[in-house]
Design a protein around this nucleic acid. Structure first.
Length: 453
RNA sequence: GUGGAUGUAGCUCAGCUGGUAGAGCACCGGACUGUGGCUCCGGCUGUCGUGGGUUCAAAUCCCAUCAUCCACCCCA
């Protein structure tokens, strides 16, 4: 058990038996996206390093420590893509899509790469499916995006997921909010966890979703509901002083346009009956987000519970040197979706051979030709090793085929073949001339879809 | 990048305080060269993750390294 090579850390092979789940999930998603009128776009797996550094933000974790950055033999500074939106916007500009109709609805599916320590639901190569609307800043675009987002999960069989939503406003309002948070946390600052004290400087909004017990106590519970009696008086006093000022919410710092946009998005969502939950602490990890932000989580995934998320990114295309072009989008981690489905015990179909053809000594050549003929219309299998009849029957049983064709010498002479139903063991002669019709009939309307596992 | 746990057959795992590997499942073959899934019989697979050290002797103890898992950071 020490092979010379194994898949690089954080990557994995998807083998037959598991891949069927992926194909199923991809097919379901494709169906929803097409009905929504989105069109697929495929972009390179690597791009100029600068593209990601610019758009995600130099200070973001993705850029600072998670990029697969490399120089090619021509000295180009490249990186494996850590996310999809930047590439889509680059392609949009490069091919002048803006000049071919104002609004573009696009979707993509493919592997992304981030260098991080692997854990449950986190890989260095992971798959995302995502969608973008470029060219309109209308609240209706945000609403459609979230509806599409929710409907994808519905198509995968997630029933009761609540979407977390927030507005992160503009970079200006976020800055103002950060200052307000620093001020508000001032009195309790020494009691915050070391991480949060650091975050208060670098990214104050992150303090709000700290998992430290005391941080959570300070932010979410407030005075009057102490964890335990042993809290020191100085701490209690500090918390009380902190709460003498109202707890700041990002939504209160929005400019009037962003605020109106937010109200319109909420109204649109409720008109569609989409269950949402406002999460004042919801901040996205990439710098390019503006206004609407949303996420979906699943507890069964452990610490890495985010299944997908997205938001509006009105300044991104301009950052890339293009004309002002608003956009909204999301991406969903397929690895996590599949993991969550598995943990919910969702059964999925597998598709082995529908018909197995067994030959006798004198009919091997005829049987081989028959299999090839049948394979034009349905899934057929045979024993390519020319083993004995008993072995062929065994192989047929294992193949999962629902029907068995026995090409016996005597029947073949008469132009027949024996059709056996694996389920009930019944068998009857069938004319070779009309075999396909009989088989399709016996298999039902969907010939290639067979037993579920 | 930080912390903890774990690496024995294809899979799940046993192997007590050191004496040089085992079970179940899976797989292959036979009983059953014109009828499979059941049953019975037989068989295969291991540099005990890798490298080094201690010892007469290491799967077992020590160190390093790689990998996996879980958590932190962060995110999908």
């Amino acid at each position: 058990m020490a092979p010379k090579h194994q898949a690089p850390r954080g990557t994995r092979d998807l083998l037959p038996g598991e891949i069927e789940r992926w194909q199923w999930a991809e097919d379901r998603a494709r169906g929803v996206l097409e009905r929504y009128g989105y069109r697929e776009i495929r972009t390179p797996l690597f791009e100029d390093y600068e593209l990601f550094a610019r758009t995600s933000g130099e200070s973001s974790d993705v850029v600072q420590k998670e990029m697969y950055r490399f120089k090619d033999l021509g000295g180009r500074d490249l990186a494996l893509r850590p996310e999809g939106t930047a590439s889509v916007c680059r392609a949009y500009l490069e091919h002048g899509l803006g000049g071919r109709g104002r609004i573009h609805r696009l979707w993509y599916l493919g592997p992304m790469f981030r260098y991080g320590r692997p854990q449950k639901g986190r890989f260095r190569q992971f798959w995302q499916i995502g969608a973008e609307i470029l060219g309109t800043g209308a609240p209706g675009a945000d609403v459609e995006m979230i509806a599409l987002f929710v409907d994808l999960f519905a198509a995968w069989g997630f029933g009761e997921l609540a979407v977390l939503v927030n507005s992160v406003g503009t970079p200006d309002s976020r800055r103002a909010y950060g200052d307000a948070l620093r001020e508000w946390f001032g009195p309790v600052r020494p009691w915050l966890s070391p991480d949060s004290q650091r975050r208060l400087e670098t990214n104050p909004l992150r303090v709000l979703d700290s998992k430290d017990a005391r941080d959570m106590l300070i932010w979410s519970v407030g005075p009057g509901a102490w964890l335990a009696d042993e809290e020191e008086d100085a701490f209690k006093l500090a918390v009380t002083r902190t709460y003498s000022k109202p707890k700041p919410h990002l939504l209160d710092f929005l400019d009037s346009n962003s605020s109106a946009h937010w109200d319109a998005v909420l109204a649109g969502l409720s008109a569609l009956g989409i269950a949402t939950e406002i999460d004042h602490g919801l901040v996205r990890g990439l710098d390019y987000y503006t206004r609407t932000a949303f996420e979906v989580h699943d507890r069964s995934l452990g610490a890495q519970s985010a299944l997908g998320g997205g938001g509006r990114y009105d300044g991104l295309v301009e950052t890339l040197g293009g004309p002002p072009t608003p956009g909204v989008g999301f991406s969903i981690g397929l690895d996590r979706v599949l993991l969550a489905l598995e943990q919910r015990g969702t059964p999925l179909p597998a598709g082995p051979a529908a018909v197995f053809v067994a030959a006798m000594e004198g009919t091997r050549a005829e049987a081989a030709a028959l299999v090839r003929r049948l394979r034009r219309v349905l899934a057929a299998d045979w024993d390519m090793e020319e083993r004995g009849f008993g072995a062929q029957m065994k192989a047929a049983g294992k193949s999962g085929a629902r029907l068995l064709l026995i090409v016996g010498e005597e029947e073949w002479e008469r132009g027949d073949v024996v059709l056996k139903d694996v389920g009930d063991g019944s068998q009857r002669p069938v004319p070779v001339a009309t075999l396909e019709d009989v088989l399709l009939e016996a298999l039902g309307t969907r010939p290639t879809e067979t037993r579920a596992r």
